[in-house]
């Protein structure tokens, strides 16, 4: 078991897990290698209670107000928001692409569901990401075991419920091993 670095204060409501906020931003036009990804990602801080969460969140910029190529990551304390982390390497993520204007509300609903243990998949959830891009925004939720179809189906159904998305919203599940393969050798079709 991981050592808990922060504890709930007196009178506060403890969370099932401690979490850490991270922020990353990529300089335009510079492809990110694994190393530079790790260097670009900054820890904002960790919390153990509902009240500590709000103290961070209330002072953070809303994703919809971010510019450029930026991401907020909220992961269980001790799990790095990277494919290579032991908790993530056999895992995958549900990805939802959002038209501009929806990211702030969807991100808040997603992380409140995660902190409140709404997904009901035991230890499976690793964390969540909101990625701000030029044309669209992307939210994703990462879990430990990509091959566990009962878990991934339950996460999908919970996402549909808590995000209250339009019925035509496309949800895509991607394993991290596919993401790594794709990054290392993109399908040749792309270049025909």
């Amino acid at each position: 078991t991981r050592k808990k670095m922060v504890i709930p204060g007196v009178g506060e409501h403890p969370l099932q897990y401690n979490y850490t906020f991270w922020y990353s931003r990529r300089n335009p036009g510079r492809p990110a290698s694994t190393q530079s990804y790790e260097q670009n990602i900054k820890q904002i801080g960790s919390f153990a209670s509902v009240e500590q969460f709000w103290r961070f969140y209330s002072h953070m910029i809303r994703p919809g107000d971010l510019t450029g190529h930026s991401d907020f990551h909220l992961f269980k304390e001790g799990i790095k928001p990277m494919w290579e982390d032991d908790a993530n390497k056999m895992g995958g993520k549900w990805i939802i692409r959002l038209r501009k204007g929806l990211a702030s509300r969807c991100w808040e609903n997603l992380i409140l569901a995660m902190l409140g243990e709404q997904f009901m998949v035991g230890e499976e959830i690793c964390g969540a990401v909101v990625s701000v891009r030029f044309q669209e925004d992307i939210i994703s939720i990462w879990n430990k075991t990509a091959s566990d179809q009962a878990t991934t189906a339950r996460i999908r159904d919970t996402l549909r419920r808590v995000l209250n998305l339009p019925p035509n919203t496309i949800m895509e599940y991607k394993t991290h091993t596919d993401s790594i393969k794709y990054k290392e050798s993109p399908p040749s079709l792309l270049f025909h």
């Binding site: 403890p14 103290r55 209330s58 409140l112 902190l115 409140g116 243990e117």
Partner: peptide, 21 residues
């Protein structure tokens, strides 16, 4: 073991607590 479950409304209500500021 038991899990600590909170719904969205409860979490949003906690935002107004003096402890959350």
């Amino acid at each position: 073991g038991t899990r600590i479950i909170y719904d969205r409304k409860f979490l949003l209500d906690c935002r107004n607590s003096p402890l959350a500021r």
